[in-house]
């Protein structure tokens, strides 16, 4: 297993490099002078020229990239033009809300989707199955901000059961923290419920046709034991795959959900940075989100080897 893991980790290096190059070039190759953008409308051309030198924009591109990469390796993600703070300290502030939202969402989604998908597989072809699959198609199509506003309007504005928007730090009380996360996490979880339920159904169905399930049934094991011990565990590999797809949706979902529910996390920070043309912050955040994606996919590959003893490299 170890040689495989090492090889897999090494394989992520070129991908990370490519992401760095893309993020780096995105700023340099799009029309418009970043220095002029940073300096603002009131700047004179001398101001801009001075800023160009200061930002290293007069150096040739490969040199600029080398400086950029060197700073990244030192953990220096640059300083926000707007807040004059290191980007990393702003990111540190945003991690808690974003992670809370993501965790809540995944927990809600798994709690609902895995039983639904398993049920649909067991009752394949029945009206229960059709209903669950119909929901899955719909859940996949409703944009998260539409669900968010529907939930806000009915549960927060009309019924006043939940606060409309906002976030409470976990340090200020776990109850309030959880209470304020219910609506955004529910809105974001809909698409995951659809995705995970569908995948669970497919893989459970596949496993149910296997010989060892028939054997387990033939020897008189109760239905629940067949399901939990034999079917679900073997169906876990495709379910883990789906988590890889889910993380991509989760990142974009977080950006939109944080905007709708005004949660001061990384998504809202990214949007603010983009609207304020705060390039170092934008660069750092895109790079960071991409790294999360790459690392999660790495972990998934590791999880395969642990979950399914048949997979050996």
């Amino acid at each position: 297993m170890w040689p495989y893991l090492l090889k897999r980790i090494l394989a992520t290096i070129p991908v990370v490099l490519v992401v760095m190059v893309i993020v780096f070039l995105m700023l340099r190759l799009t029309p418009g002078d970043p220095a002029a953008n940073i300096a603002g409308d009131a700047a004179t051309s001398e101001d801009i020229a001075e800023l160009r030198v200061k930002l290293g924009l007069e150096e040739p591109l490969p040199v600029q990239f080398a400086i950029y990469a060197k700073n990244l390796l030192k953990g220096d993600f640059g300083e926000s033009f707007y807040y004059k703070r290191p980007v990393m300290s702003m990111v540190a502030d945003g991690i808690e809300p974003t992670l809370s939202l993501a965790l809540f969402t995944i927990v809600i989604a798994c709690l609902i989707a895995v039983p639904l998908g398993t049920l649909a597989a067991f009752k394949q072809g029945s009206w229960v199955d059709r209903l669950i699959m119909a929901f899955s198609v719909i859940g996949f199509s409703v944009p998260v901000f539409v669900i968010g506003y529907v939930l806000i309007y009915f549960l927060a504005v009309k019924l006043e059961w939940f606060p409309v928007q906002g976030y409470q730090r976990i340090g200020d009380g776990v109850a309030g923290w959880a209470y304020r996360l219910i609506l955004p996490a529910t809105a974001l979880s809909v698409i995951f419920i659809a995705l995970i339920a569908r995948m669970t159904r497919t893989s459970v169905l596949e496993v149910l046709n296997e010989d060892y399930i028939r054997t387990a049934r033939a020897k008189g094991l109760p239905q629940s034991k067949v399901l939990l011990k034999h079917a679900l565990r073997n169906a876990a590999v495709p379910i883990v795959t789906v988590i890889g797809i889910a993380i991509a949706i989760l990142i974009s979902g977080v950006v939109v959900t944080e905007s709708v529910f005004v949660i001061p996390g990384l998504g809202l920070l990214t949007l603010d940075a983009i609207q304020g043309r705060d390039y170092p912050t934008v660069q750092a955040l895109i790079l960071l989100f991409s790294l999360v994606y790459i690392i999660v996919n790495l972990l998934i590959d590791v999880a395969y080897t642990l979950l399914d003893p048949r997979i050996r490299y």
Partner: peptide, 24 residues
């Protein structure tokens, strides 16, 4: 394929937002 892997690692929505905001 390395370039494609890299492009895929960047969340679509962020890539799109950044591209639009940078190029108008």
């Amino acid at each position: 394929m390395r370039v494609m892997d890299g492009l895929m690692a960047i969340p679509a929505i962020l890539l799109a937002i950044a591209l639009v905001s940078l190029s108008g």
